[in-house]
């Protein structure tokens, strides 16, 4: 008996798999750029200060906030993947763990965003 054709919409596991890849790729490319900009300390203090100054502009401040968010989700989801692989308990509570990833991300970002955006936009 073959099932009726459906559009596969996935479930939490598939979406988290996608989120893990997307955030991983974004973080990887940022890392390449971040090592290059830091390398300017070997050119001159002036060159470094000028380029790093762009990290403090509103646009980059927002990009940076997004990157921190990507890192937090990627880190927590990585722990979830390890847990689900390792413990039956975690496998049985996959869904709760997925929700936990997002809830903890929200809590961390609630601590980080006011502070960071305050510095970027308010000067403090």
């Amino acid at each position: 008996m073959s099932p009726a054709p459906t559009l596969y919409r996935g479930s939490d596991g598939m979406w988290m798999w996608f989120v893990h890849r997307a955030t991983g790729v974004a973080i990887f490319f940022f890392l390449l750029v971040h090592v290059l900009d830091t390398s300017l300390v070997r050119v001159s203090p002036e060159a470094y200060d000028e380029v790093i100054g762009s990290y403090k502009t509103p646009i980059y401040g927002l990009v940076e906030a997004g990157l921190v968010g990507a890192i937090v989700v990627h880190a927590l989801n990585g722990l979830r993947v390890i847990a689900v692989d390792r413990w039956d308990w975690a496998l049985r509570h996959q869904r709760a763990l997925t929700i936990a990833v997002w809830v903890i991300t929200a809590i961390v970002m609630a601590g980080f965003l006011p502070r960071h955006l305050g510095v970027v936009f308010g000067g403090h």
Partner: peptide, 19 residues
């Protein structure tokens, strides 16, 4: 991230002297 962005003056403290 915590030391560079949360403590002190956050991202605005980062310059050559900080590194």
């Amino acid at each position: 991230l915590f030391v560079n962005l949360m403590t002190g003056d956050g991202v605005s403290q980062i310059d050559f002297a900080f590194v």
